[in-house]
Nucleic acid binder design. Structure first.
Length: 592
RNA sequence: GGGGUCGUAGUUAAGCUGGUUAUAACGCCGGCCUGUCACGCCGGAGGCCGUGGGUUCAAGUCCCAUCGACCCCGCCA
């Protein structure tokens, strides 16, 4: 059993062999993807990171070797010595990268056996995610997911390359840091040395990267894990990776320009795709009114139109009442509504009810008028005005939602995506980037009955708006920007406040007392008094970016060892209980 | 915290209005097979129907609870 590795070195990856290797002796090491035992000749598809190649065991070449090959089962680890040859005429496999050749084995070592795996490792077999995650080390042998992680590595490498060449310095920031109860829930780590106190795992290196600007590093980046203890989604994990960037002496424009070059560099080197620069930009206000959300998917139309003015005096009571109560009536239009059945349209009511939208109506536009449950309530003038405003031709379907403006946008924003997916209006190969700018600095929180930061409390206001911070906080714009790709926010950043007077105004507007602010962010406030340069930055969600670039449906398919929706790991069984001794050492007691 | 979909063989699924021994495909085991490539042919093994309780003469099927997976809302500055 031993000896092969001392005698032989691996010469090639399985997936690299091609016709030009014909006639060469090679040594391959890998896993058995599949065996086809014909009684006489035995075929083995041997797999490694780079792909598959067919290995042939023929009793005429080496009877002992052929006999040994009879023991082989799936996922055994083999070392094979043999000669590459072109496959016999007509035996090529065009579906296999190495399909022109095969390896005639004359020496075999079974380096390790394998239990029968719980699932077959090919793309035809679909396996539930809990089984996949429980046996993640096997799941990760599948070529599709290996491809994702290999591309991820390439993207990170390309990003580093870009940053190094553009004068950015990579600096690590602490994972054991201070809890700042603004924003997401923190993951806490108890301190043994300081009983009763806790570190927090960083939600982002925000404050540290700003301090690095105070220190004069000028351009910083880091590809770094961040942690947020919030509920999971298909594109959200409790630990995730950011490409984190901060720059000194820059404007919003400077950050946006260099970062879109960085993104273009990633797409060019990793996908071979040339993106058109500069990326389109849209204001927050336009994004909300045209797309119903601040991360618009611009791959398709179905834009929102406001019909409140036309319908506020309408004979359709639901509409007129909502309009007179300060609500809004908006609509989207599907140009070719033939494939939407009456039932489909009626079911949309259920869909928008998820967003607590009260009223939904629809209309089919015909050459002679509308087919619509609300047609009889509308005047011909209203029908014409709406048809015109929507730009609806015969065959179109108009879908109306009436409720408070926020609810309407939310409902229609989701509905347009739902319909675009259902109707196949989305080009799966498109990458539609959009910068969203001009965010409000504050949003009024109904739950907290106060203004809260839209971005974070260090975001700089647009200079012209500074006078209104106290008098009219809702009108103040931020020097903030989000990068959106196909409707998904993949990055966001801002110019930061570098003067303490402005910072003090912001804290005041947020209802944050001087003492409280000092307690939470004192060190940053101190730093602002020692010559902080103007600075700003951005952070990209690497996982989401890789998801988009690989076409993965789930963030879990681009992370080697992800958590389930309950924020647990089926492989290691984390999180788990710990011993009383461990708890005592930390001065902790479980209350429940 | 809330809404939804789903848990049946190793895996993926079927199982109707409750009724005899719970099906199939793939995988697995054995046999045959010297050119297959999702090899083929013959035979075989394999089940706590997620768990607990209830209704019933009878439960995979109905009801309640609970655990778990996924999707969504809230949440995620």
């Amino acid at each position: 059993m031993t000896g092969f590795l001392t005698r032989r070195k691996r010469t090639h990856y399985c997936g690299h062999l091609k016709a030009s290797h014909a006639g060469e002796d090679v040594v391959l090491m890998g896993w058995v993807n599949r065996r086809r035992d014909h009684g006489g000749v035995i075929f083995i598809d041997l797999r490694d990171r780079e792909g598959l190649v067919q290995v042939v065991f023929n009793p005429d070449v080496n009877p002992d070797c052929h006999a040994e090959a009879g023991r082989i089962r799936n996922e055994f680890v083999l070392a094979v010595h043999g000669r590459v040859r072109r496959r016999p005429e007509g035996m090529e496999n065009p579906d296999l990268g190495t399909g022109d050749v095969e390896v005639m084995a004359d020496e075999l070592e079974i380096m390790n056996e394998s239990k029968t795996p719980p699932f077959v490792l090919d793309q035809m077999t679909d396996v539930s995610e809990n089984v996949r995650l429980k046996f993640r080390y096997l799941d990760l042998r599948r070529p599709e997911i290996q491809r994702n992680l290999i591309l991820r590595s390439g993207i990170a490498a390309a990003a580093r390359d870009f940053f190094y060449r553009n004068g950015f310095i990579e600096i690590e920031t602490p994972f054991l840091t201070k809890s700042t109860p603004e924003g997401a829930r923190d993951y806490l780590v108890p301190s043994r040395v300081n009983p009763g106190t806790f570190f927090a795992l960083p939600q982002s290196p925000q404050i540290f990267k700003q301090l690095l600007m105070v220190s004069g590093f000028d351009r910083y980046f880091q590809i770094v894990k961040c942690f947020r203890d919030e509920d999971l989604r298909a594109d959200r994990q409790p630990e995730f990776t950011q490409i984190d960037v901060e720059m000194s002496f820059v404007s919003e424009e400077d950050v946006v320009r260099i970062m879109e070059e960085m993104i273009a560099h990633l797409f060019r080197t990793c996908l071979g795709r040339d993106l058109v620069l500069p990326f389109p930009r849209i204001s927050y206000r336009d994004a909300m009114s045209r797309f119903g959300k601040d991360s618009p998917d611009t791959r398709f139309g179905l834009e929102l139109r406001d019909l409140t003015d036309i319908l506020k005096g309408s004979g359709f009571k639901l509409f007129s009442e909502i309009a007179s109560g300060g609500g809004s009536i908006q609509a989207i239009k599907v140009d070719d509504g033939k494939s939407l059945s009456r039932k489909d349209l009626d079911d949309l009511k259920d869909f928008v009810s998820r967003f607590s939208a009260a009223g939904l109506a629809w209309a089919r536009v015909n050459p002679e008028g509308w087919t619509s449950p609300i047609f009889k309530f509308l005047t011909p003038g209203e029908v014409t005005a709406i048809t015109e405003k929507m730009g609806a031709r015969a065959g179109a379907v108009i879908i109306f939602v009436a409720d408070s403006p926020g609810v309407v946008r939310d409902a229609l924003g989701h509905l347009r995506i739902h319909l675009a997916e259902k109707l196949g209006l989305i080009d799966p190969k498109a990458f539609a980037f959009t910068w969203v700018t001009g965010f409000p600095l504050f949003e009024f929180s109904e739950t907290e009955k106060r203004y809260v930061s839209t971005h974070h409390p260090f975001t700089a206001p647009v200079p012209d708006d500074v006078p209104f911070i106290e008098s009219d906080p809702g009108s103040v714009h931020a020097q903030a920007y989000d990068l959106v790709l196909n409707g998904s926010e993949i990055g966001g950043g801002s110019i930061r406040i570098h003067r303490k007077e402005v910072q003090a105004l912001i804290f005041k507007a947020l209802g944050l007392g001087e003492e409280e602010a000092r307690n939470k962010f004192g060190f940053l406030l101190d730093a602002l008094e020692y010559g902080t340069p103007p600075h700003g930055g951005i952070a990209f969600g690497l996982d989401r970016l890789v998801m988009m670039m690989t076409g993965a449906d789930s963030i879990r398919d681009v992370i080697a060892f992800p958590k389930t929706q309950k924020a647990a790991c089926p492989l290691t069984d984390a999180p788990s209980r710990v011993s009383v001794e461990q708890l005592m050492e930390l001065s902790l007691k479980i209350a429940t």
